[in-house]
Every structure is written in structure tokens, then in C-alpha cells.
Amino acid sequence: MKKTLLVAALGATTAFSAPAFAEDVYFPIIAKGFSHQFWQAVKLGAENAAAANGVTITFEGPNTEAEIDKQTDILNAAIAKKPQGLGFAALDSQAQVPALKKAADAGIPIVAFDSGVDSDIPLTTCTTDNLAAAAGAAKGLAEAIGGEGEVAAVIHDQTSATGIGRRDGFLNEIAANYPNITIVDVQYANDALKAADTIKTIMQAHPNLKGIFASNEGAAIGLAVAIKETGAQIAGVGFDSGKTQKDAILDGSLIGSITQNPVGIGECVVDSLAKAIKGETLPPVIDTGFYWYDASNMNEANIAAVLYD
């Protein structure tokens, strides 16, 4: 029985110390999106921490994760309000550096989250180490198929840092530690429906396939649908949570999944900003950690707390 593979030191233990700000403190938090479950969980964590620290926050994001320009607009609007601090999850690790520089020049402390920025402007970055988390998924999948056979991966995006990180983390882990496992295909699908059809095609092309890794919630839903529709004896491993994925793990369609700690990420951002304006120094990266979860540990308190429907 697998338990938590790794739980990083949570930098974001919510402080219960009394709020100690003379004036109203306001932090705009700018995510990569808001409609996705993941961001809703981040928002929850951020709101919790805001209440605990006695600060006000707003939580915003563009419609889709492709709208880099729109996110930049949101960022500029937030900077214009001259907040005391700013939380930012960059859609593009380089394109938005100039806008951030403006904020830094204005003396606004910045904490990056989810994925980093290619710059030393952010005081710290609250993030999941995607490489490590995807390696965790690879380990879970490899053990489930006995360390040998053909596997494939369906990745949610070709260009984003999370897509690249999870793909490479998965592939590197297999290549480094499981010589008897062959990666036969890596495909991309950005929503559940497309993922389902893509995965069925992969199964068609590779009849001896033993396992598939799906790199986000949408891809994992598609994976569960494809496995159910074909009845194939294939070990499926997902990423993130959501009700469909959790149900699929419970009914055995998927063997397990990796969850980040979105609530923890949200808490980390606001806590770090609160610390920053009190003058505390922060480590350059705060790994908010990840968990492997499956039917056996889904209901344990520390896991259940970070899973969302």
C-alpha cells in the first residue's frame, strides 16, 4: 500500500498570530485562470490566509490559460491600484517580466506562484515542483504495471511550464529508473473530450499498452472515459483532482493520481506577502508539495483536505 510519497515542508502553515497592520493592507492575487477547479482551491487557501492575517485580497485571472495579453492587462490594472503586495502566477515565464519590473520599481513586493518567472523580481515562488510531482506519477504507474511494458502519456499543453514540466518529469523518471518500460507515445489534448478520443487512438495504435499518464484534470477525465468505454485493462494515472477523477479511482478505472496542494499554494502566497511587508526574508522557492493518492488513502484527512470536487 502506497502512502504519501513525499510531502514537502509546508512553508504555508497558517499563522494564527494576531493581525498587526496599522492600515488596510490589500494584495491582488492574479492567477492563470479562475474557472478551473484548481484555481478555485487556490483561491480558497488565499482567502483563508487573508482572514488569518487580517488583509484584503482580490483573486482574478483571464478566461483561458492562452490569454497572456489579457493577464498582463489585469496585472497592469492591479499595479495601478498601488497595492501593498502582489501575488502573480505568470502564464508566460518571460513575457510579463517588464510589467513586473514596473511593480518592483514602485516598491510593491511580489510573490510568484504556481509557475515561476525568469527573473529575480519575485521575493519567492510558491509552487509545486512539477518535475518531482510527475516523477511521482511515473513511479506509481511503473509499480502498478510491474516495472515493464509499454506506456504512453497524454499532456494537456505543449508550451506551458506545467505541461512541459509534467511531461519531462514523467519521461525522465521512466527513462532513469525503469529500463524495461518503453514510452510508445506522447500526445497532447487540451480538454476532456479530445483527451478521450486521443487516448482511444493511442490504445488502437498500441495494442500492448500497459499504462497511461494524464497530466491534468481534463486529460484524466478523458483517460477515465476512454478506459471505461473500451474496458481496456490499462493502468491509468491522473493528475490533480475533481469528482470524475476521484470516482474513477474509487471504481478502479484509474489506479491513482497526483495532487498538488492548491489550498497550500494559496495560503503560501498570502502568508509570504504578509511576511514580506513585515520585513521578513523569504527563501527563493517554497515547494508547496504534492501527494500521491489512490483508493486506499483518499479519505485520510491530510489528503482529503487538498482534494476538490
Binding site: 483561458t64 476532456a192 473530450l193 469528482k243 470524475t244
Partner: peptide, 15 residues
């Protein structure tokens, strides 16, 4: 068709 197949209405899909 799409929501039945995914057994859920995914509000972010469709664009």
C-alpha cells in the same frame, strides 16, 4: 452528447 459522454457538464470546454 458531450456531457453524457463525460458524465459531467464541463463549463470551460467548448471554445
Amino acid at each position: 452528447l458531450v456531457s453524457s459522454r463525460l458524465n459531467s457538464a464541463q463549463p470551460a470546454l467548448g471554445l
